[in-house]
Amino acid sequence: MSREQTFTEAICEATHQLMEEDDSVFVMGLGVDDPKAILGSTKGLLDAFGPDRIFDTPLSEDAMTGVAIGAALAGRRPIHVHIRMDFLMLAMNQLINVAAKNHYMYGGQQYVPIVIRAMIGKSWGQGAQHSQALHSFFAHVPGIKVVMPTTPYDAKGCLVEAVSDDNPVVFIEHRLLHYQKGPVPQKLYRLDQGKARVVVPGSDVTLIGLSYMAIECFRAQKYLESKGVKAEVIDPVWLVPFDLDTIIKSVEKTGHLCVVDNGWTTCGFGAEIISQVIEKLQYKLHIKVHRMGFASVTCPTTTPLEDLFYPNARTIASSVYRLLKPEQSSWIPEEREDLKSVEFKGPF
């Protein structure tokens, strides 16, 4: 498995292969067929499949989501692309009141196989309305699956799985992951939904990072090594369905759990993970837990405040150290050049 691709290349290849394999798959969304091709993730699809299978839409997220749902009801498998997750706020009625509901509400007579690709922005002044990570919203509502892969390998395998699934799936991509490279098999492959990935095994603390935060946790784990702390880093990959078992197994071993959400902590998925773990283990084990995530404010544009807004490897390492050794004086590692842009690539 030596061939490397970026996250966007992996998505593009997966889409291409899915469209080849299944005539009912099509791609719609603002700018999907334009010269920049959604950061390259839809590149070449127009040439390969023509304008019936990949097309630009008017700026009408609400209606276009409803249209995607309608097409899905008619037996198609649309992939609806949004360059910012924030724009999904205009489509919430269709997503929450229709896509998530129809199968149940109509007694199983209908189903809605749509995939919503939604991107989270970060840094460099994206600011209040271009940086939101709203996976916890979607995970809250029964009837929608949520996946947020971190590596190119998972991006491809999970997109294939999402498009093949007969339910609405929100497929979340972090913009900072788009150019990360990693091994990606050429053939079409599917990764099981609801499977978390143990990125690095460890014994002292279970460190869970969502989406891009998995990368920061991976770096934090390296910082923690210098203090003799062995963190087990886990990327849940899927929020719905959620792989509690892998996490329970880890916490049974470590007794310490730190969840770093790529989003706000209040009512967020980090709280969900911690509750589920404690409910399961509280009679067996005394567990120490900690949540991290965005500061509970609107994302500011200015760099010094934006830097404080997000957790990073060093603040994560520092918090984990405090969780493990509350009696010791606080510690924050010096920035290490070699860890500034380290990627985790697999192979898995």
Binding site: G125, G127, T302, P304, L305
Partner: peptide
């Protein structure tokens, strides 16, 4: 420039 003297104290940026 993201400065505190900005029209939104650096919190909004060019788009706000």
């Amino acid at each position: 420039y993201g400065k505190v003297t900005g029209c939104a104290k650096g919190k909004g940026g060019s788009m706000h």
